[in-house]
Nucleic acid binder design. Structure first.
Length: 363
DNA sequence: ATTTATGATTCGGA
DNA sequence: TCCGAATCATAAAT
């Protein structure tokens, strides 16, 4: 390249002995018209150097002439190559960065919440799960549920609208820049590769804007969720029928009021606890029995009336079902390992005997 | 407004 | 992991 200053001052003559640029372009082919080509290049360079001295019209005409010159593509390629080697190699280092973990986290969350992805997906499931925590009895929470769903779908809609807008803006801008660069590539050494690189830079910028949208959408969902979930402490009493069923089980299993998993499920079904998540259903029943046991034990006399009532009812049911020994399933006579374990564990029978409050011992 | 009832949560222990 | 105990928070009763 150190040939260039001399070339520029050579006024297009006497290029012999200075192959330099010409050799680069011609792959060193030495032919009969080799001298002529060198002459050409000298001319071109001379024209470029003096273009600023000319009038505007003259310069335009000259520009056009140069653009159409047969040597132009070769010159363009060389300049692109040089540029590639210098500027772009530096910038190229910071390319191909791995996918942003934060962006992935946001994407996953949006997908999980049903904001992104298919139309009616995990969103309602998440709402159902949250609704289940509010008490989960029957249709009591349907109002809150639909409220949650409505708000979520609102967020969802905004998110998609904005995302589409961003996408469109990104495409428009990309097209614009590409056109601009293509246009400029007539006068500047801009290779297709460089255009491609520019496009990817634009996409990166826009995706960082998209991330902000995702971020704020996630925040909105979190706020909505927390507000909805905070309502879980809003106690919602079981309806009378459900309480009766639970009490019935409790007092008829007073010696061992620890329903198994299956029993819990059945009780939940009978009580009309209809929630998609079994775990929560079981928790609700377990909570009830936990509370009941401890509160019964704490103040047995207070529950005496209730106990008698349910016991009487159970007795009536039992006799109507089978006329003979309803004593068979009487909890006061533990005849299985499970009941004995329960006896040791909670001393329920002992307590009942001491206070003589359970119907089994009083009858 | 205060009290009671009750479903849920937390925490330590077996 | 389940239970008991204590506690929280709120619905329902007073």
């Amino acid at each position: 390249m150190d040939e260039q200053p001399r070339l520029m001052h050579s006024h297009g003559v006497g290029m012999a002995g200075h192959p330099g640029l010409a050799q680069h372009m011609q792959d060193g082919t030495a032919g009969t018209d080799g001298e002529g080509r060198k002459q050409d290049i000298g001319d071109i360079l001379q024209q470029i150097m003096t273009i600023t001295d000319q009038s505007l019209d003259e310069a335009q005409a000259r520009k056009h002439a140069l653009n159409c010159h047969r040597m132009k593509p070769a010159l363009f390629n060389v300049l692109c190559e040089i540029k590639e080697k210098t500027v772009l190699s530096i910038r190229g280092a910071q390319e191909e960065e791995p996918p942003d973990p934060q962006l992935m986290r946001l994407d996953n969350m949006l997908l999980a919440e049903g904001v992104a992805g298919p139309e009616k997906g995990g969103g309602s499931a998440a709402a159902a799960a949250a609704a289940a925590a509010t008490g989960g009895i029957g249709a009591d929470n349907s109002a809150e549920h639909s409220d949650y769903r409505a708000k979520l779908s609102q967020i969802r809609q905004i998110y998609h609208t904005e995302l589409e807008k961003y996408e469109q803006a990104c495409n428009e801008f990309t097209t614009h820049v590409m056109n601009l660069l293509r246009e400029q590539s007539r006068t500047r050494p801009i290779s297709p590769k460089e255009i491609e690189r520019m496009v990817s830079i634009i996409h990166r910028k826009f995706s960082s804007i998209q991330m902000q949208l995702k971020q704020s959408t996630c925040e909105a969902v979190m706020i909505l969720r927390s507000r909805f979930l905070d309502a879980r402490r809003k106690r919602r009493n079981f309806n009378k029928q459900a309480t009766e069923i639970l009490n019935e089980y409790f007092y008829s299993h007073l010696s061992n009021p620890y329903p198994s998993e299956e029993a819990k499920e059945e009780l939940a079904k009978k009580c009309g606890i209809t929630v998609s998540q079994d775990v929560i259903v079981l928790t609700v029943v377990s909570n009830w029995f936990g509370n009941k046991r401890i509160r019964y034990k704490k103040n047995i006399s207070k529950f005496q009336e209730e106990a008698n009532m349910y016991a009487a009812r159970t007795a009536v049911n039992a006799t109507s079902v089978s006329a003979h020994g309803s004593q068979a399933n009487s909890p006061s006579t533990p005849n299985s390992a499970g009941e004995l374990r329960a006896l040791i564990k909670g001393c329920w029978v002992l307590l009942a005997l001491l206070t003589c409050q359970t119907p089994e011992t009083c009858s």
